[in-house]
């Protein structure tokens, strides 16, 4: 029984890979072949779908847009969450527990509830269809999440570290930047990973807040599917390309990912 234990994760990973394989399979087929019938692998291997995406600005600009707002969001979320998480992990202050729960409630708000008011709010402040609008809107759920993760990591660091540094004559800002931030580097990496992840995969708000200039790739895919006939090959290629940034980011945090998913609370 113990001998066959490896089968469980292997079968599970196989199950995970099947739809991804099918997507890749479709992306290397010509439209004729896709509509022509069922084939397990591309009979006439073609890169034409990928070439279309990389040569047509209306396509590839979508990737640029998505990555732009995701990066802005990650930077904003992590940098404002750092001091807040420090305060929550080190001090008691008036209303801290209520504040912490209030922050978390925003992670629980269904985006569908906020879609229309967000559209009106960001139109009113003239930020509609900008990258910064999407980045700020995604802060609604990413900032609380970053605070939660960082607080978990920071609570694991003994307070003696702070006290020793003050005794050694460090001022607070110098201690925070020179000693504390390097100490929780793994936590910051994990928090950034989560912000990246949830901003990258969210679409409802991103789609609501953009029309042309900042339209995310995922939204461009839906538009293409409806206007220019159902070009499955092109759609599959665009979908396959959206997997790459995530895969790269996972690779960087692979050693901390398990702890990170436990929000630093293990």
């Amino acid at each position: 029984m113990r001998k066959y234990k490896w089968l469980v994760p292997t079968l599970y990973i196989l199950f995970l890979m099947l739809p991804i394989y099918w997507l890749l399979n479709m992306s290397f087929k010509t439209t004729n072949e896709i509509l022509g019938g069922f084939t397990l692998w591309p009979q006439e291997f073609t890169l034409v779908n990928y070439i279309t995406i990389f040569s047509d600005p209306t396509w590839y600009i979508g990737y640029v847009n998505s990555i732009t707002y995701v990066v802005i969001n990650t930077v904003i979320s992590v940098s404002v969450a750092l001091p807040a998480a420090y305060a929550f992990s080190r001090y008691n202050f008036l209303g801290d527990k209520h504040l912490f729960f209030w922050l978390l409630t925003n992670r629980m708000a269904p985006p569908a509830v906020f879609a229309l008011p967000f559209f009106q709010l960001y139109s009113a402040v003239n930020l509609f269809d900008t990258h910064i609008a999407v980045a700020l809107a995604h802060g609604l759920f990413n900032i609380p999440l970053a605070v939660w993760i960082l607080e978990g990591f920071m609570s694991g660091i003994p307070k003696e570290l702070d006290e020793t540094a003050y005794v050694d004559g460090y001022s607070f800002p110098r201690f925070f930047i020179k000693i504390f931030i390097p100490t929780i580097a793994a936590g910051i990496g994990v928090a950034a990973f989560f912000c990246f992840m949830f901003s990258w995969v969210e679409l409802l708000l991103a789609k609501t807040l953009t029309s042309v200039a900042a339209k995310p790739i995922a939204a461009i895919m839906t538009r293409t599917a409806s206007t220019s006939g159902y070009e499955l090959g092109l759609l599959a290629a665009a979908g396959a390309l959206t997997i790459i940034p995530g895969a790269i980011v996972i690779y960087f945090v692979r050693n901390h990912i398990a702890k990170g998913f436990a929000l630093g609370r293990v």
Partner: peptide, 14 residues
């Protein structure tokens, strides 16, 4: 871990 985390990072409409 890397392979298992992959589905989590695919945009939801994809």
């Amino acid at each position: 871990l890397v392979l298992m985390a992959l589905p989590l990072l695919i945009p939801w409409n994809v």
